[in-house]
Design a protein around this nucleic acid. Sequence first.
DNA 1: CCGGTTACAGTAACCGGTTACATTATTGCA
DNA 2: TGCAATAATGTAACCGGTTACTGTAACCGG
Lengths: 319, 319
Amino acid sequence: MATVSRYINHRETVSDEIVNRIRPVMQELNYVPLVAARNLASRKTGIIGLLSFTVEYGFFGPLVTGLEKTLKENGYNLLVATYPPDHNDEIAPPIGPHNADGVVVFSNTLSEERLAEWYGMQFPIVLVHRTAPHSLPIPCVNVENKTASFKLVEHLIEEHGKKQIIFMRPSGYQEDAHSRELAYKAALKAHSIVFDPNLIIGGNYDQGAGRQAMEEFLANNPPSFDAVFAGDDDLAVSVISALQNAGLRVPEDMAVVGFDDQRFARLFVPALTTVHAPTEEVGRVAGQQMLNVLRGQPFDCMTVLPTEVVIRQSCGCCQ
Amino acid sequence: MATVSRYINHRETVSDEIVNRIRPVMQELNYVPLVAARNLASRKTGIIGLLSFTVEYGFFGPLVTGLEKTLKENGYNLLVATYPPDHNDEIAPPIGPHNADGVVVFSNTLSEERLAEWYGMQFPIVLVHRTAPHSLPIPCVNVENKTASFKLVEHLIEEHGKKQIIFMRPSGYQEDAHSRELAYKAALKAHSIVFDPNLIIGGNYDQGAGRQAMEEFLANNPPSFDAVFAGDDDLAVSVISALQNAGLRVPEDMAVVGFDDQRFARLFVPALTTVHAPTEEVGRVAGQQMLNVLRGQPFDCMTVLPTEVVIRQSCGCCQ
DNA sequence: CCGGTTACAGTAACCGGTTACATTATTGCA
DNA sequence: TGCAATAATGTAACCGGTTACTGTAACCGG
């Protein structure tokens, strides 16, 4: 038994003779080791969890692609669970030390106490699009939000002479969104534009309902703005839809820009001016950092992947 | 030990006295049963797998939402793995009897032999967007493709006088696409339009590259068509993009319709005329059928969820 | 030729629960 | 009151691997 185990796991050398004895029998019996038994004995599950605040966001697909690829190549499976904002973190999360070897967290719902608890028991964690508390040296993978957002807003101001720019907060309002908002304010300030708090809208809407936010805003305000910086592309698209419904032309009357450069961004009409975020790469890097932690190898506490402003048509360029 | 186990699993009645003795200790010890141990002893994993040919498709998010919700409510976790067409089904799939209690299959890559093998060993399977071989009475969950597609094409013919309608095959070319194509041909026939095989294009392109397919087609052919039925909304959007790039207006010069009614469909400009497919419901039903199989309860071998034609602008209506 | 190392194979404890079965306490009824 | 039936709890085998440790044979240099 032990020898077969050693053979299967390639842990120690097994003589050719024995191998030749084992292999045909395995074939014949169609033998596949029972994962549960290995798990119990080895105290490992071969599973990495992904705790995500949603799976609907356009971001999710590429993230999983990158993550799953990296993990699968290294013998791990991916367990997926949503952990939406309304989830109660008092009760144990669906994925944790009891059923996984590590968890990638893409959710603000998981409390810092829980993170600290897991960190304390040496349970591997990787955060994506979220920063760890200072006291916890765990890997975080983010995209560069500020510089790109700053440049994007600057583009609206400098190239298109926009002065009254709305910032629309994405629903869920993750950390990313906050950084983008800060950069937006910084860009205004750098160009001596007074920040108007009334021009920050959204934040508490369901997915895809940037349209609703925009419609409500239009209903209550005369169009006292000339551009919209939507916190992500999903939002940008629905904002454009709302504006056009209201009889405004994009980009002629109103510039709209987004963030993420999701798949449809280049296909939309008008093609979205946005910021390209390397989402699949986020997944790959998160997977790699997780592997590093699992193997006790050094890892980066903070990875910031580069982003790039992509100028297309929705800002008014390239007509 | 046994009593604690019984208490935790609520399998048999445990006296209040013992419960009051167990509970505080569990609290104090922060006790969480080790899943691997329960798995080994109970010969169950509490995990349902999802084998999907891709996770990028717009379909994926809602499917997972519905599936995960149903499963989580019943104490199961969701293990996700891609099983793309280039995957070799000779080697054991990443998810199977060795590490899950059942698998939801959304991929053509998993061979019928494998299905038969699993069925033979009583391993629960649910197929989504795929039909089981006749010999295997396992649950399949599909959406109604034919009637809706027929009506959609009929709409193009009757309301908009279209006669040369392209059908664009989605990449991957799942069963759904085939049904839609058949319905397309049927609709042509019903209106005495001769089917032109040159008007079937696409099928082998990467995601989002309906644009490429369209561009190639345009390059080789003068626009000898007046409408496009794209096999799904992803494709429809990229087709529209390609047409507009080529100087054609949609819907004035060319009608384009899709299938799925993905989230962005109503937001796109022009808003997509398409067929609404209840994707999240597919996930829920698939989850429910899986539960039925797991519990030995009766299940439906074929569920066809209703779809509905949604007329918007890309066909030429509602201008 | 011998003691010591090396390479491999075998043995059995162990991982942490579940569950069949045995045991004890309680209840119901003649 | 006594005995069978029932309910609650305890005991220990078992799930199927991994791995520390033991045993054995081949190999090595002196």
